[in-house]
Design a protein around this nucleic acid. Structure first.
Length: 175
DNA sequence: CCCTGATTCGC
DNA sequence: GCGAATCAGG
């Protein structure tokens, strides 16, 4: 992977926005954080204030809320989730808090008609049924949406609009 | 151990 | 010029 003009421009932009080198590397893909840092220096871009940039100080937002997927399991509400992402050759795990505002944003608006689920059990799912979980997995009524999902989508057209991008698509996009 | 940027130096 | 290895730090 070479530093095309386009990639250099993205690097400059992201660096100026304050993203960390590893985050920029993840976005550009095909380069390590070392490569990013090395390039930053060669470009004579301004370094981070206060050398050493503590994780606390320099850490940019972990990921956009829109790209993150809260767990919808349980009426009790799970407020953290673990997401993994690849950084260079290492897989990173992150524990991400799901704040109240974000959880609310995943609830359908009151004027939206929520399709009544087909209440399928795990063993009743097929490649063409929506795999959106409904209810508390620890309770007997836990089930899946079960409506037909178009193409290879894991979710029906309604749940596809539930505002998040499935993990495998994020991975593909990051590549 | 997680992470950060900075530097070195063989390629 | 590039970036892995390393360093120094939170």
């Amino acid at each position: 992977m070479n530093w095309t003009d386009e990639r250099v421009e993205r690097l400059k932009k992201l660096w100026a926005e304050g993203l960390s080198a590893s985050q920029i590397a993840a976005q550009l893909g095909g380069v390590s954080r070392n490569a990013v840092i090395g390039k930053v220096h060669r470009l004579n871009l301004p370094g981070r204030a206060k050398a050493g940039g503590s994780a606390t100080t320099a850490r940019a937002p972990k990921r956009s809320a829109a790209a993150a997927r809260p767990s919808t399991f349980g009426s009790r509400g799970i407020t953290t989730r673990t997401v993994t992402r690849q950084q260079g050759s290492t897989m990173l795990k992150e524990e991400v808090d799901v704040d109240a505002a974000e959880q609310v944003s995943y609830r359908p608006a009151s004027n939206v008609v929520v399709p009544i689920s087909m209440r399928l059990g795990l063993t009743e799912l097929t490649e063409r049924t929506c795999k959106w979980p409904v209810g508390d997995p620890l309770k007997d009524d836990f089930h899946f949406c079960g409506h037909e999902s178009p193409d290879a989508s894991p979710y029906c057209s309604y749940h596809q609009k539930m505002a998040y991008q499935p993990v495998h698509e994020r991975r593909r996009a990051a590549r």
